[in-house]
Amino acid sequence: MEFAPKIETVGLNLHYGDFHALQDVNIKIPAQNITAMIGPSGCGKSTLLRCFNRMNDLIEHTRVEGGIIIDEHDILKPEADLISIRRKVGMVFQRPNVFDLSIYNNLRFGLRIHRMLNKRDEVMEAIEHGLEHVGLWQELKDKLKKSALTLTLEQQQRLCIARVLILKPEIILLDEPCSALDPVSTLKIEDLLRVLKHEYTLVIVTHNMQQAARVSDYTGFMYLGKLIEFGNTKQVFTNPMEKLTENYISGRFG
């Protein structure tokens, strides 16, 4: 695979106390593609994802070794600016985590924190653009003052994605973004991800292998903290190189 990686880990090891959660992970994630991480529960896929914006810093007794290079900068270096990393690397979670605020204020929240855009019309423009991007503008443009909690789960998840997009990130991490959604909403979110990949680098963690197959361009299979196989999704799902991968994707274990 020849591509300039957007994210690259070099000998990445992570310990939660005594537990060796990531073991010498070397992965290159291509820009403007969707990369899926799959593997059984506890294999380290979410831990790896959380490394990419240093969310693991929040967990006590975590020790990280190795390098995580994003655009040629090692984000594990002490001088790395955490705020700018988190702006550049947005994250969407399993359950839509909208705030108990209006739709408008949900979207404005991040702008305020990052001290971006103060003028009202600029904010409005960013909000319109964000909602347009996730296919919500037409539905919600007259309801921006309504509470975000009145939206359906799918709309809430779209709103969460819009909230990330507004901050103009380059990478979007998605941790099981559809597991709280019904199958139809899931397929709609997948269509949205396919649109977003033209502008952003997406990394999605999913326990739903079929989703990884449907939506991603590259797939990484993890098992017991190790990256077992990484490759083109077509190849991984039709002719994997590792027996372990084949056994997992064909449902023989996990």
């Binding site: 079929q210 197959a213 449907r214 999704t233 077509k234 799902f237 039709t238």
Partner: peptide, 9 residues
């Protein structure tokens, strides 16, 4: 066809 069956279920 094989890709579609494997990837799109």
């Amino acid at each position: 066809c094989i890709n579609l069956i494997a990837l799109q279920q």
